[in-house]
Design a protein around this nucleic acid. Sequence first.
DNA 1: ATTTACAAACCGTCTGGTCGGTTTTATAGA
DNA 2: TCTATAAAACCGACCAGACGGTTTGTAAAT
Lengths: 212, 212
Amino acid sequence: MDNASRSERSRNAALEAAIAIIARDGPGRLTLDAIARESGLSKGGVMHQFRTKEAVLKALLERQMAHFEEFSTRYMAKASETSTNPNLATQLATVREAATSPNSAALALVAAMVENPNLMALPREREMERMAAIREEAADPDLAMLRWAGAMGLLLTSLFGMSPLSKDEHQRLFARLVDDAQWGGLEQPAATRVVKSGTVPAAKAATRRKRA
Amino acid sequence: MDNASRSERSRNAALEAAIAIIARDGPGRLTLDAIARESGLSKGGVMHQFRTKEAVLKALLERQMAHFEEFSTRYMAKASETSTNPNLATQLATVREAATSPNSAALALVAAMVENPNLMALPREREMERMAAIREEAADPDLAMLRWAGAMGLLLTSLFGMSPLSKDEHQRLFARLVDDAQWGGLEQPAATRVVKSGTVPAAKAATRRKRA
DNA sequence: ATTTACAAACCGTCTGGTCGGTTTTATAGA
DNA sequence: TCTATAAAACCGACCAGACGGTTTGTAAAT
């Protein structure tokens, strides 16, 4: 087999093994020996492809980022034609994808943080660009960011096994976050708050329901 | 010094040290030796108070939970008199508290997850009760959960150093999440979706702004 | 006098990383 | 095309230190 592809095959096997370990045993159990065992490579082989453990984490992080980057750009292509806020739509869809993808992908992130918190700088900077784009296109930037935060909340809580929500609820909530039509009523253009005439039906409903 | 208080002082010192380590060096660096060093105790002393490392994590978790429990009940006492959805208000305030508290408190959670993911069961169950209460009192339960998810998103992203938001934005977004008045416009009582008449001003604004 | 809180040396295992050697592929000259 | 040599991929034994936990000993409280 070609030398280059041999290397790539090994690197791939190692990273795949790493993900499997994290997903199965938790980030604390991710060791070089474990990767070697799981991937079928020898430890020496692993160390030949990645000089250090941090290099493994970094590669893992970059791989996952690339994966979602691709999903993102593909989605963006479609969204930019139909949506008035394609960046937000794309970001929300991507987060949902991360939350549902079978290979608990974003776990790479957790592993990275455990080992070396400042590895987070990479994804954070990427995220900031996206945030700026979302803000630019939004009629109500803060609301857009809150929708993003909601998606992240759903993703991260379920990722850490802290989510009190069922799968169904999860799906439903994501769907609502994504649907622009359901967030049209409360934009706040700068200082002028939209004060709806006297009685707000929802408030009454809430009062009515209290201690039901 | 009294024996009981001597113990408590040591336990406290150990837990305090643990938090400091996690906040400074990341959860991966939390070891028994490190705790001993940081707290001034000997390792034997630490092991006398906590028979195992997991016991330390568990105590840490319970301590943090108790702290926020107290904050929660105190806040709830006030909120239940003024708010129509005191549970949601309390929960949002508590999450904000966790996000702003100087001692990055919730890091205990991360450390626990790294070492033993199923320690998460405790906080999760507590969270589920609260979720149920929030749902009960809400006119639009899904919206309430989304506001909760938004708060969690803000908290967790900043906790992991992934937040692309500044402190100011953080504060502002939390304030908006908490303010019931800003979420009154879009409740969805069961199946009847509120379709606002033809033109939604915000949508126009968004279109206008696009590619500015 | 006994129990409790702490100290310090110690133990077996695991961890990230190194190293010398072996096999596989690439390159170059005849 | 065959062959000699270099270079890359890979192996597996090894190492020093760190890890969670135990044991033995001592001082303080009860």
